[in-house]
Amino acid sequence: MGRKGAGSRRLSESLLNKEIWLCLALLCCILWETALLVAAMRPEGDEVWKGEWALAIGVIADTVRTEIQGAPTDMKGSAYDDSFLSERNYGGERKHYGTDLMDLADTPGRLPIYSMTKGVVTNLGWNELGGWRVGVTSPSGVYYYYAHLHSYAPGLEIGDTVQPGRLLGYMGDSGYGEEGTTGRFPTHLHLGIQVYPEAGDESWINPYPFLMERESK
């Protein structure tokens, strides 16, 4: 009995240890992920590191993560990388406030673009940088920006309410010029997420970690 009891205790201690380690590992993962997100979203040149800012970023990340729960996870046919804040030249030197998803076949009109989130179509039509673009504002006020489209889903209009997975249009190579300009760059989707549109460019956040997270589901 003694041997069995000792053995049982050792087993339960070992299980307890495992649980503690698992919790610690999970906590470390969460802290690390938050740190990465904060680093990615922190405005360049900001030397003041405020606790409130970090907290706000954590809340924003959770909001976006919750909003895109229903987003499609299949990104077959495209490839993406972390290019947030990389250099761009068209229209003067500027930063890249988004993630580009490249069509592996570089064929405009081939890949469908679905809404990542529930929301209302608040922008539709041409703009010089984004070409044919769609802007969807979620119930929390986060703005999801899909640019360089080849064409729109039939019937899509400003004011439409969309659900996650709703077809918005097709990947293209439009933009960087006057209305109708195409072919200035390879076929891709520019995906932008702006958490506080009134704040301007500083409030774009990096979609890359969210895409990675969705794809791993």
Binding site: A79, D81, D100, M102, L104, D106, F185, P186, H188
Partner: peptide, 14 residues
């Protein structure tokens, strides 16, 4: 390859 294609397309190789 997919990663490579992303990079060359981004570099303007079409």
């Amino acid at each position: 390859l997919y990663n490579f294609l992303y990079k060359i397309r981004e570099a303007g190789i079409r």
